[in-house]
């Protein structure tokens, strides 16, 4: 579960996130959309603890991400928009590193890595140095690293960028399955049809403020009867401008 209470983040004069509050309950698939520069990535960084809010709090399954960072991060994982890996480690070494840092017993970690390797088709290159990977290969390794420790909350930033259609399908099914199994998914995306397809609720952020949150039907009503998420998005963000 993610509980965001009144968070604000400023960069000098600019307010990147403005008194944002939101609760994403256990097992929900939440999509987070907004125009470029609306504050999506900053919000994600505040949720996962890579940035510190000037005001407000973020709790992951009841653990404050700043005050009990280690406990909160044990329950959390993050898939960033750019999959930067250690070039001089192999994919397997990276996955083992992440698993062991989460105190997963070695044999169990190996089993889990094999499972994920089959699921995400990593086996052809998992023992090669990451410096030779393509963007898509890196992205799949990053996705594997995000679920190797069975997190309760997964925060995803543009997960489909760089993936081929088959991998997109695998990742969508994987995230949907995790959500059904009880994991909370918070996904930021510009691909509105992916949000429509996967999310139970969608939040629209603009100029650092949450302008609308709800199911697709609720958003349609809020935007005056728009036909789909795209039209709702355009109407709601246009009103803000």
């Amino acid at each position: 579960m993610i509980e965001i209470e009144n968070i604000t983040k400023r960069f000098g004069e600019k307010i990147a996130v403005d008194r944002l509050s939101l609760t994403v309950p256990r097992g929900e698939f939440f999509a987070f959309v907004g125009p470029n520069g609306a504050g999506k990535t900053t919000t994600i960084k505040l949720i996962v603890g890579l940035m510190r809010a000037d005001e407000g709090t973020v709790r992951i399954c009841g653990q404050d991400i700043q005050k009990n960072a280690a406990a909160a991060k044990a329950l959390l994982s993050h898939i960033p928009d750019q999959p930067y890996l250690y070039d001089k480690l192999t994919g397997r070494e990276f996955l083992e590193f992440v698993a062991r840092m989460h105190r997963i017993e070695a044999a169990q970690a190996r089993r889990k890595i094999e499972e994920l390797s089959d699921l995400l088709s990593l086996s052809d290159y998992l023992d090669d140095l990451a410096e030779g990977y393509s963007h898509g290969m890196k992205q799949r390794v990053v996705i594997a690293s995000a679920i190797v420790h069975d997190p309760k909350v997964i925060v995803v930033d543009e997960p489909m960028v760089g993936l081929d259609p088959r991998s997109v399908r695998v990742v969508k099914d994987l995230l949907r399955g995790l959500s059904r199994a009880g994991a909370t998914i918070f996904m930021s995306t510009h691909t509105l049809n992916v949000a429509e397809e996967l999310a139970g609720r969608v939040g629209i952020i603009d100029c650092g403020r949450m302008v609308a949150v709800g199911t697709l039907d609720e958003l349609r009503r809020a935007s005056g009867g728009a036909k789909g998420l795209e039209e709702s998005f355009l109407r709601l963000t246009a009103e803000e401008e």
């Binding site: 996962v48 603890g49 890579l50 960072a69 280690a70 406990a71 991060k73 044990a74 959390l76 994982s77 993050h78 960033p80 750019q82 930067y84 890996l85 250690y86 992440v98 840092m101 989460h102």
Partner: peptide, 14 residues
């Protein structure tokens, strides 16, 4: 640098 997300997300004290 750009890999800071890896260390920043680990469940250990910084």
């Amino acid at each position: 640098g750009r890999k800071f997300w890896i260390l920043g997300l680990l469940p250990i004290e910084r």
